[in-house]
Design a protein around this nucleic acid. Structure first.
Length: 424
RNA sequence: GGAGAGGUGGCUGAGUGGUCGAAAGCGGCGGUCUUGAAAACCGUUGAGGGUUUGUAGCCCUCCCAGGGUUCGAAUCCCUGCCUCUCCGCCA
């Protein structure tokens, strides 16, 4: 949620900044609701104050043995008036909250103008697009030929967009996960974290997945209203929900490997081939909870940590900054890492690193105690994939293939592969 | 799944209808003393929101959550959630 103070005091400017992402803020309706809220709230609270004062005097009168009947008569109708006022306030507040919850985050000044993916701006490249003296295969052809990547069985067991892996490929998938976790804990100072894979609605609300993006989620049957996590970002960030963090415990840096479950509603027909877009995939997620003034630097650092994975694996990639029209709902600034996929002859997203500012923190009341003001203040949250494991598997297979369809594993993975250096 | 106990401020814990946002202790912060520190002593110390130019003042809300009773609820009633103990089951 964006700062409601901004809505009150700087509405036109907020609307202008949101226009960068193609979002039209209904300023007329907002200021009308806000004016109404103000008058009803002031009125209701005055009524509450009166009720409190009168009740207190009744208490005193009773204690000193006076007759309280006349006092009681005076307040006879107060209850109803109060209830009416409170109900009206709650109603306006609900409408206002619903509206504000639908407002996306204000984009960072660095975010370029643009309507969609095509307008994202490349920031830098690492490595050269891999070239071959033969026609490179994509991971599906490689995987099926090698054995160990079985899409038919996945869809038999469950349905489309599910895969069974086995043998060396399954091991490679696990090796990549271990490698990423070891890198981020060992070299980058992140704390390994294990979290629930099912979360409640409050947690999803906190990160901004609810109420707006319910159709992207798998909701479980049963009384409890639980959802499968779409990313570790949800449970990990909610570690600090309703918490006031000591200044000397900042920043908090988490790395967490989880499966992710996404319904991919609205992406029918997109990336239907192979592992690129599955309902279930593994991801190693990086999350930082930082002081507000540190979040810009934290995004750069976290992005670099994710890039390190690609560099050590020797996978060519580029970094793009998302334009206003392509940036996510909760994010103020996002870098995507796009890895080179020879099978597609394209750079494809393998990580998305975002600074959320105080947007998530405000929704989940995640705060830190500022030693200067001595008051609890909202933290900033930053996160990104480090990396999506399935897509990394795809990238390794496609970039390290030879003419015979074998996959020569990068050196950093050898210790994790139990002596296997070539998948054949 | 069965039986019982309980959820109060950073922590322990008192409070069973009125002046209670809440005793006391611990912790934290500031001070006195000290070369410095400790001890001792004194003071101070919850969160959210509204109004307002205001980190001033005033006001509202919050004692797990949501309803209810009442002029008035931490305290009474209902529902839910969570925690603990014992038994059963289980990776």
């Amino acid at each position: 949620m964006i700062d409601p103070q901004l809505i009150r005091n700087d509405l036109d400017n907020v609307a202008k900044q949101l226009a960068k992402r193609g979002f039209v803020l209904d300023t007329a309706r907002l200021s009308e609701l806000e004016a109404k809220r103000k008058s009803v709230q002031v009125e209701t609270e005055a009524l509450q104050a009166e009720r409190n004062a009168r009740s207190k005097s009744i208490g005193k009168a009773k204690a000193s043995g006076e007759d309280i009947a006349p006092l009681l008569a005076e307040v006879a109708d107060m209850g109803d008036r109060l209830k009416a006022g409170e109900a009206r306030l709650a109603e306006i507040q609900t409408v206002l909250d619903e509206m504000l919850q639908g407002v996306p985050n204000i984009p960072h000044a660095d975010v370029p103008e643009g309507r969609d993916e095509a307008d994202n701006v490349e920031i830098r490249r690492w490595g050269e697009a891999t070239t071959f003296d033969f026609e490179p295969k994509d991971h599906v052809d490689l995987g099926v030929t090698l054995g160990g990547m079985d899409f038919e069985t996945g869809s038999k067991i469950t349905g489309s967009r599910f895969t069974v892996m086995s043998g060396a490929i399954a091991r490679l998938h696990r090796a990549l996960t271990q490698f990423m976790l070891d890198l981020h804990t060992g070299d980058h100072g992140y704390t390994e974290t294990y979290v629930p894979y099912m979360v409640n609605a409050d947690s999803l609300y906190g990160t901004g997945n609810l109420p707006k993006f319910a159709e992207d989620l798998f909701k479980l049957e049963g009384e409890q209203e639980y959802y499968l996590i779409p990313t570790a970002e949800v449970p990990v960030t909610n570690i600090v929900r309703d918490v006031i963090i000591d200044a000397d415990e900042m920043p908090r840096k988490f790395v967490c490997h989880t499966p992710c479950f996404r319904s991919e509603a609205g992406s029918y027909g997109k990336d239907t081939r192979g592992l690129i877009r599955q309902h279930q995939f593994e991801k190693v997620e990086l999350v930082q909870v930082v002081k507000p003034q540190a979040s810009d630097a934290a995004l750069e650092s976290l992005t670099n940590c994710a890039e390190q994975v690609l560099q050590r694996l020797g996978l060519p990639y580029r970094v793009v900054i998302l334009c206003g029209g392509d940036i996510g709902f909760s994010s103020t600034k996002t870098y995507d890492l796009e890895v080179w996929l020879p099978g597609q002859q394209k750079y494809r997203e393998i990580s998305s690193c975002s600074n959320f500012g105080s947007f998530q923190a405000r929704r989940m009341q995640a705060r830190w105690r500022n030693p200067e003001s001595k008051k609890p203040e909202l933290v900033h949250t930053v996160n990104g994939s480090g990396l999506a494991v399935g897509r990394t598997l795809v990238a390794v297979m496609e970039n390290y293939q030879d003419a015979e369809g074998r996959v020569h594993l990068p050196k950093v993975l050898h210790p994790y592969m139990g002596g296997v250096t070539v998948i054949e």
